[in-house]
Amino acid sequence: MMGSRVAELFSEIDKFRAQLLQNVEVMTECQHVETEICHKEILTRIENVILGVVTSLSKDEAPVLALPNRSSWANVSFDSAIGLQMSSGSSVTSIRSDCASSVTKFARILKILLVIYRLVQSSSYATKRDIYYNNTQLFGSQKTVDGIVDDISSMLKVPRRSLHVLATSKGLISGDLCYLEEDGTRIDCHSSSAAVAVSSNIGGIRNIVSSAKFVLIVEKDATFQRLLDDDFCAKLCPCIIITGKGVPDVNSRLMVRKLWDTLHIPIFALVDADPHGIEIMCIYKYGSVAMSFEAHSLTVPSVMWLGLLPSDLQRLRVPDAALIPLTKRDKSKLDSLLKRPYLASQPDWQKEMELMQQSKVKAEIQSLAAIAPDFLTNIYLPNKLRYGGWV
């Protein structure tokens, strides 16, 4: 069955070649976008990939696609002003059409390329979920589609949002913020009873209005909801809180970057005092290896670690019952973090992480409730922000 679906796909390629040979002009004007890559340029890059496949077929050669390796630290360089970015001479993975282990992925990539081409050409959008349900048998899972879309983005050197493929956001945002969506819908984030879902089209957001003094990135949804329930954004001073509910999705990261670019205010991170929380903060600040090809639009190098600090656990005398011993996996993650290239530029972070190594314990933000139920919102965060002169 998979063989027949691959055959159908190559039939589509033949039709696509005929379309290219007819020299169809795409009359989409280049609009100014963050990436400064216009529709016609994106179409040209896709056409070049397809023409490479067609050329190989015409010579009775097996077509091969070269994808940048998005999982290797060897392909990443560190720039303190940008974060982790993919090196220009990064290694590639060859996806062959004549190899049993890669022919299915080859077919999936071409199918999604054709979908993206039509989306860009018609100035329409689709979600990654739409693409998955376009051919569930070929793709197998939503995760497969998600990975291939990022592979294509990296291969074409085009930010994912410019491919007209949207992802459903999992993040939430609240606070002193209003803006317009691309379709003109006005979004007001001031409500203290319910948060707003982070937009699926950050690039289309405009007319941002806010008097916020800072943005607070919150690692967990539970802590975010607690701040919301306590009306944190209104009690202390005007501010914005946002959560990616753990490891952030691309839209949550894009939103933080958008706010930083637009409002020029401090960005703080509130994460658990454990290796996992620290890594999440590092993703917002420095980026990730997998998305290093989009570092310029995803990272926020000014992010500051507000808490929960390992040193806070001792300073505040958090009860031992609220502390958790580091697991073997935690220790391995901590060792890995300390070897990251960006740690050399953060000696204070390094000291905190070494303190965690020595104490061999970690703690969640919720551990502060062991001191007092309202300690986080009424004492801990206000004192941290006032001590730093931010409020």
Rank of each mutant, 00 (worst) to 15 (best):
M1C: 05
L9G: 00
D14Q: 09
K15T: 06
L20E: 04
Q22A: 08
Q31V: 14
E36Q: 09
K40L: 05
I42C: 02
I46W: 07
E47V: 11
I50D: 00
I50C: 10
G52N: 14
L57T: 05
D60H: 13
E61N: 10
P63H: 07
L65S: 08
P68Q: 09
S71F: 09
W73R: 13
S77N: 09
D79Y: 11
D79E: 14
L84H: 09
L84Q: 06
G89F: 05
S97K: 05
A107M: 11
R108G: 12
I109W: 03
K111L: 04
V120T: 14
Q121N: 13
T127Q: 08
K128N: 11
I131S: 06
N135R: 10
Q142C: 10
V149G: 11
V149S: 12
I152W: 03
H164D: 07
H164T: 11
T168A: 11
G175A: 06
D176R: 00
E181P: 02
E182G: 05
I187K: 03
S199V: 10
I205T: 04
A212T: 06
F224G: 03
D230W: 04
C237I: 13
P238R: 12
I242S: 02
K245C: 15
K245W: 07
D249I: 03
S252G: 13
M255Q: 10
K258F: 01
K258I: 06
L263T: 10
H264F: 09
V271T: 03
P275Q: 12
H276K: 13
G277Y: 03
E279K: 12
E279D: 14
Y286I: 02
G287V: 03
S288Q: 02
A295K: 05
H296C: 01
S297N: 00
Q314E: 03
R315P: 00
L323D: 00
I324A: 00
L334R: 03
S336H: 05
K351H: 01
M353Q: 01
M353S: 03
E354Y: 02
M356K: 01
Q358W: 04
T377Q: 14
N383M: 07
R386C: 04
Y387G: 06
Y387I: 02
V391T: 14
